[in-house]
Design a protein around this nucleic acid. Structure first.
Length: 679
RNA sequence: GGCGAGAUAGCUCAGCUGGUUAGAGCGCAUGAUUCAUAAUCAUGAGGUCCGGGGUUCAAGUCCCCGUCUCGCUACCA
């Protein structure tokens, strides 16, 4: 077991094109906050960095849509994200941003170092160029007609109408999304990071050296390594980002995946002049907290970059969590299906810890989990209020009642007292072990056991009865109950810092530090505690219903949007001759079979009346092969043949597609002879 | 199609390298209790451990074949 002198913790950089939601929190920020707070309480040397990821194409698109500059967009969300994190008590040592001057210089220098060391390869490719706007067009900037569903507003990377993944060269009638002009193909040079070169190092480091990583993380890495790594472009043609610091690279910026993780380094630089100690000493333990979508970047790509650079350490662990769903559906920013942090903070003032608690207790550590408002309410009412809040309240209220707030002296302990107190150190080590192994859900459960222990102790010793017969004994009981309360203030801090502070305030103490956990002399006899206040309050049904209505509204809005989107605009007019050039016929499906190793492709043998021919069609998700046999369909028979997965496709089947992407074949309403002409 | 992860009580999850009657929290039922936000405490009911084969003295745990969910990836004229 390696011994470390200090910790460097990073949390995935939120992308600055939208606010933060509970999915981000449960997967990344709440767990990492717990981890870091724990380390700090232990007095460890720890630095925790994060910041907004502000480059990349989606931000420029969003800016254009809203008619503002990319800088406007990132400013808006950066500050919004930053302040909502603070509101929830997410305690980064620094929350930086990738548009900062420090970052531009750091990323630029990093690139330059790799460039000078010959760590990149160069490749020239053909890409769409907009002569009017004088710039190369990223896939997202090319629009055209989707070859699949004929939607004429498809983007070069994806058709939003049918969800198909595309390449910009696939689009029919491509046009520039910037100027609307027809783009031309032009040569462009880019730099690549040859990941394959680092494969042996990565293999040894991860597959041999880090078998303790979470199953999902390790498995994903193994999968990538076994598939064989490919060189990856580190630059692209765009005007938003960090310019490639090489002569002759005008109009090119660093690819966002390359600049973003360097943001961790830049943030550390902004935080402390000692930053190198954290990034370049083997006795620093670096941990990346991320979601599962980021595994490859943090386990393969970024380590390869750091290794290529040569001076940096690699992460000791990369706890990647799964995803959180909301009320049974995937969280989605574009569909507004989310609980937004900034809205939660407004709707639930003073209930920061409730959200922290629920998200930790239900964190998607081993598989995707579901957040429901009903569960939120139940955990608040049945666990926080009934177990934790209630215990603290009864201990403090009884102390007020019997001793006017002055802590009574601990007398002689019974065996039962000793048994109860001996559980505290056991819980302490259980919490420690779980946190150190990134099992925060279990750690929280153990922490709550201290409150359960307290409730049980009071129920078993019944001080409210004994006060009449044996007041001396009650002093000891209440002293113990108060010591347990003080222990709660400690153990709860990483998970629920606001609650911890409230307890400390009520018992009139300063933070104890983690090592004090388990001690039974935290409150001296005679110390006077403050008037008790409730830590948590019940959440009524109406509150939950209001949140559910909010979600229902966004579901409704989405449906309306879908409907609005439903009817595509009419396309530009075509001449009668153009239409006449298309030869569409009635045909009958003779045979149908799935093409092996594909998900969507069916190979159909059809009788067109003219001949019997083969057509490949991407409808395997909509039809069982057997269901098509014997059906009459319409076929564009004079479309240029095209080879798909090794099969020649001679023509295209006409399909009707609804906005959800569902497809049905089009048939004549009455049986017609094969070869009958449509027109 | 390939790859990765998951599938265990009504719900959310533990079960490490195979070993006595499969565990926890919540919910539910019954009882106790009243200091406490009708909170607490005790007891109990609830499980073909996704399905089917196999290895073994012994399988939730290992192997093979399926099914379903999530993610990555190829294909979509």
């Amino acid at each position: 077991m390696k011994k470390f002198k200090r910790h460097l913790v990073t949390s995935a950089l939120p992308y600055a094109n939208g606010p933060v939601h509970i999915g981000h929190l449960a997967g990344v920020y709440v767990p990492s906050d717990i981890y870091v707070r724990y380390l700090r309480l232990r007095g460890e040397d720890v630095v925790w960095v994060c910041g907004s990821d502000e480059h990349g194409v989606p931000i420029t698109i969003k800016a254009r849509q809203e008619g503002v500059t990319p800088q406007d967009i990132v400013d808006k969300y950066h500050y919004m994200i930053k302040s909502s994190f603070e509101g929830l008590g997410i305690s980064f040592d620094i929350y930086s941003r990738t548009t900062s001057a420090t970052h531009h210089k750091t990323a630029s220098d990093f690139f330059r170092t790799l460039y000078d060391k010959g760590e990149f390869t160069e490749k020239t490719t053909m890409q769409f160029y907009d002569e009017e706007a004088k710039q190369f067009l990223a896939d997202r900037y090319v629009m055209g007609t989707c070859p699949h569903c004929q939607n004429d507003k498809a983007y070069g990377d994806q058709c939003e109408s049918c969800g198909t993944t595309l390449n910009s060269i696939d689009l029919i009638n491509p046009r520039s999304a910037i100027s609307g002009s027809v783009p031309v193909m032009r040569e462009t040079k880019h730099w690549y990071l040859p990941l394959d070169k680092h494969e042996p190092m990565l293999r040894k480091w991860i597959l041999d050296g880090h078998k303790e990583w979470k199953a999902n993380v390790y498995g994903q890495c193994k999968s990538w390594l076994d598939l064989g790594l490919q060189p990856r472009a580190v630059s692209r043609d765009l005007d938003w980002g960090i310019p490639v610091p090489v002569e002759g690279a005008e109009g090119k910026v660093l690819y966002v995946w390359f600049d973003a993780p360097i943001g961790y380094i830049s943030a550390t630089k902004d935080l402390t002049p000692d930053w190198e100690k954290y990034w370049k000493s083997e006795d620093t333990k670096m941990v990346h907290f991320i979601g599962k979508d980021n595994i490859v970047f943090h386990c393969i790509v970024f380590p390869a970059m750091l290794h290529a650079h040569g001076e940096y350490i690699l992460p000791e662990n990369v706890p990647g969590n799964e995803f959180l769903n909301l009320e049974g559906d995937k969280i989605s920013t574009s569909r507004n299906w989310a609980v937004w942090l900034h809205e939660y903070l407004e709707d639930f003032p003073g209930k920061e810890d409730v959200l922290r608690y629920v998200l930790c207790a239900n964190a998607p550590e081993t598989k995707d989990n579901d957040f429901t408002w009903k569960d939120f309410q139940a955990r608040n009412n049945n666990e926080l209020v009934a177990v934790l809040g209630n215990f603290v309240n009864r201990a403090l209220v009884l102390t007020q009642k019997y001793y006017e707030g002055a802590v009574p002296a601990m007398g002689e302990l019974t065996q039962y007292d000793k048994d109860i107190l001996s559980e505290l150190p056991e819980i302490k080590s259980a919490v420690e072990e779980n946190i150190e192994n990134y099992r925060f859900r279990e750690a929280l459960k153990e922490a709550m056991n201290i409150a359960r222990l307290g409730n049980k102790y009071l129920a078993d010793t019944e001080p409210w009865k004994l006060i009449k017969t044996d007041p001396e004994r009650v002093k000891t009981i209440m002293n113990i109950a108060l010591q347990i309360t003080a222990n709660l203030a400690i153990v709860v801090e990483p998970f629920m810092p606001f609650t911890s502070a409230k307890i400390l305030k009520m018992i009139g103490k300063e933070p104890f530090g983690w090592d004090a956990l388990g001690r039974t002399d935290l409150l001296a006899a005679g110390h006077v505690i403050a008037e008790p206040q409730l830590l948590f309050e019940k959440i009524e049904d109406s509150v939950i219903e209001a949140q559910l209505e909010k979600l229902a509204a966004s579901r409704k809005a989405n449906a309306a949007k879908e409907n609005g989107k439903k009817i595509e605009e009419q396309k530009g007019s075509v001449s009668f001759d153009d239409f006449g050039g298309m030869d569409i016929r009635v045909a009958t499906v003779l045979e149908a079979e799935k093409i092996a190793k594909t998900k969507k492709l069916l190979k159909l043998t059809i009788d067109t009346g003219i001949d019997k021919r083969t057509i490949v069609s991407g409808i395997a998700e909509h039809y069982e092969p057997a269901d098509l046999v014997g059906k009459q369909i319409l076929v564009l028979v004079n479309l240029e043949p095209r080879e798909l997965k090794g099969v020649m496709s001679q023509g295209m089947i006409l399909m009707a597609t609804d906005p959800s992407g569902k497809m049905v074949v089009v048939s004549p309403t009455e049986k017609m002879p094969n070869g009958a002409v449509i027109g």
